[in-house]
Simulated scan of single mutants.
Amino acid sequence: MTTFSSGSAGEPPGSTLVAAMVTELEPLYGRIDVPGAPSATPADFAPPGGDFLIGTADGAVVCCGGIKRLEDEACEIKRMYVVPEARGRGIAQELLVALEDRARDLGYGIARLDTGPKQPHAERMYRAAGYTEIGNFNANPFASFWGEKRL
């Protein structure tokens, strides 16, 4: 079972996880933390409109993900990442549920997210979790699927 707590994307272990995610995606898409990409800064994931969750299991940090304010009722789930050695155990689904629960706690009624064409497993997970395809809400040049779910 994974335990989730609020942390910062700007300091370890959050910053370490985000850096690992960006590095892992670089061979697929190039750098994703560049000008022109949607903002995903530690400030985006800070209260009062955002949060950054860090997950631990068996005493080890295994995942992270952020919530970013978009508009009054909508937020964006970003920077979801599970460390390679913890994959295949359902942690990504647990993280998504935890992020949705936290978004509800923050008062959001809609969650949006995106993923790229070289991550079909992520798109399948999002669709299975109830995200329906919508238009390109965030002008993400790396994405091919944009999804939305009523919370």
Rank of each mutant, 00 (worst) to 15 (best):
T23C: 12
T23W: 12
L25A: 01
P27V: 14
G30T: 11
D33H: 15
D33P: 13
D33A: 04
D33N: 10
V34Q: 11
V34C: 08
P35N: 06
S39D: 13
A40L: 04
T41D: 14
T41S: 14
P42H: 08
A43W: 05
D44E: 04
P47E: 15
P48C: 01
G50W: 01
G50V: 01
F52C: 11
T56L: 05
T56Y: 04
T56F: 06
G59H: 03
A60K: 13
C63Y: 05
G66C: 05
I67P: 03
K68P: 02
L70S: 03
D72P: 03
E73V: 11
I77P: 06
I77L: 13
I77T: 03
I77G: 12
V82A: 06
V83I: 10
V83E: 09
P84L: 15
E85V: 12
A86F: 14
R87L: 11
G88Q: 11
R89M: 14
A92V: 08
L96M: 12
V97F: 11
V97W: 15
L99F: 09
E100Q: 14
D101V: 10
Y108A: 12
I110T: 14
L113D: 06
D114M: 01
G116T: 00
G116V: 02
K118F: 07
H121Y: 00
A122L: 08
A122Q: 12
Y126P: 12
A129P: 03
G130K: 09
E133I: 14
N136K: 11
N138H: 07
